[in-house]
């Protein structure tokens, strides 16, 4: 495992993504709310490009005290990304599948040294 230079943080706008290849691993590097996240670009469902689909706020369904639905709403902070092949949805911060958190994309550590961003792979 070695730190691989990916790019400069100043050139990486918030909300932007990069799909990179390190050796034989294809990795999606996200910048969301100032933080960097890196996950394997192979969807756990059927190997689709998991990191290249829609990014969308988590949809939640709050309940009233009597357990009736208040309808569907977007979460204010939690963001997900969706595999474009069949809609497998993953949490941006953990890479865990939304419906079954036991299922997780391989996560790569991202190290920031000043303005430089490295992925440990």
């Amino acid at each position: 495992m070695a730190e691989q230079f990916v790019g400069k943080a100043s050139e990486f706008k918030d909300g932007e993504r990069q799909i990179i290849r390190i050796g034989e691993d294809e990795i999606g590097v996200f910048r969301h709310a100032g933080e960097f996240y890196a996950y394997s670009n192979f969807c756990l469902h059927q190997g689709g490009p998991a990191c290249e689909g829609l990014t969308i706020a988590r949809v939640i369904e709050p309940l009233r005290e009597d357990k009736t639905s208040m309808g569907l709403h977007f979460h204010e902070t939690d963001m997900n990304f969706v595999c474009p092949w069949h809609g497998y949805e993953y949490d941006m911060k953990t890479g865990a599948h939304i419906a079954d958190p036991r299922v997780k994309l391989r996560k790569y550590d991202v190290v920031r040294k000043g303005d430089e961003v490295y992925v440990v792979a």
Binding site: D14, E16, R17, Q18, I20, R21, E52
Partner: peptide, 15 residues
């Protein structure tokens, strides 16, 4: 030992 090398495949701009 394969020498890992970063290759940028795609850049997806922010919405």
């Amino acid at each position: 030992k394969p020498t890992p090398k970063v290759e940028v495949l795609r850049r997806i701009p922010a919405p």
